[in-house]
Design a protein around this nucleic acid. Structure first.
Lengths: 181, 181
DNA sequence: GGTAGCATGTAACGCGTTACATGATTCG
DNA sequence: CGAATCATGTAACGCGTTACATGCTACC
């Protein structure tokens, strides 16, 4: 039940059309809540039906026409309610850890190459986050309204840092393991 | 497409019935791939139909009767294939980070209490992992076949450590923020 | 006017979740 | 025998994913 709230947040930051939202979900918000354009259009329809958002006055309702949405007061209230409500952490889901556990049973053949690939992907993501930090949060300038956003970014940086370190360590261990290479 | 492989791994470690699997998914494997008993029964049916597992000879097929499964050679081969195959990391999904981003727009009212609760949950999980480490991986004794399992456990420990640190930091920042308290 | 790209959708399917149903076993 | 517990299921629904469809706009 989080996609509608992700969309409300994005629309409050800036009113947008479906495709613009999709693009923003590929960048900033999508770093921790991804969505495809099909999900977004489906959800925009629901949010509009529930009275949380509306199309901007300059709309043409035809099919191939751009249609921008803005958040209504009821939408902002719902987002505030959701933000403050207690929520249990979702159960963990990590395919890579599952694969290592499987490898402990059926062997590590072919695993190493993909671990290298993942390491490279995480390094790239980390570099991207650090670049954003340099650009948007230079040291010294720390406006109160940016504090929360910086906090979120730092979570991303620390998580990617963890994965690069852990994968490096995992590759070390794999190298020392007996078995076909 | 990972639940069947999680089940194959668990069944290779030890043949089990559906409910026993459910219990094991509440503990070890479920730490990074959770599943309910409904999912597990559904998936056991599919895996049996595909010839990857079979019921142990001592079966009684009646409804309330215990039914244990073991992995067939085809199932082990499929698991080995899946383990070695390249897989892209799943896009991140984290509700808490999303909520912080929403709070940057609609305010932080009511957020603090739930962050405290999450911090406590992560501290408890971390303690549980460390207890498992003390019990199953005492320093010095590091059999090669346990290396991979220990590696997975350390990922869990490091991730929970990260969350406790990050949440502590987040609560510090929230405290310094202006606004209704 | 034909083609490429922009923009908004529809349809189908599978996994994950929640609620409920049914049969066996144990024990007072 | 009645209740609690163990054990295996069924049904319904929503989100996430993939593939495909339709209508505009710009440009050669």
């Amino acid at each position: 039940m989080s996609l509608p709230h992700a969309i409300l947040t994005a629309l409050l930051e800036r009113p947008s059309s479906g495709l613009e939202l999709t693009r923003r979900f590929d960048r900033s918000i999508g770093y921790f809540w991804s969505a495809t354009h099909q999900q977004i259009y489906r959800e925009l329809g629901k949010l509009e039906a529930e009275g949380y958002i509306r199309t901007l006055p300059a709309e043409q309702p035809a099919r191939g026409q751009k249609k921008s949405y803005e958040v209504l007061p009821a939408g902002r209230a719902e987002l505030a309610r959701w933000t403050a409500a207690a929520q249990d952490p979702r159960p963990q889901r990590d395919v890579l850890l599952l694969r290592l556990r499987a490898a402990a049973v059926v062997g590590t053949d072919g695993l190493e190459a993909d671990l290298h690939r993942h390491l490279e992907l995480h390094r790239r993501q980390l570099a991207e986050y650090q670049e954003i930090q340099r650009r948007d949060f230079p040291p010294g300038k720390d406006a109160p309204e940016d504090r929360l956003r910086h906090l979120v970014l730092r979570a991303g940086i620390d998580l990617e840092t963890f994965w690069t370190q852990w994968l490096t360590h995992a590759l070390d261990e794999l190298g020392e393991l007996p078995g076909p290479r």
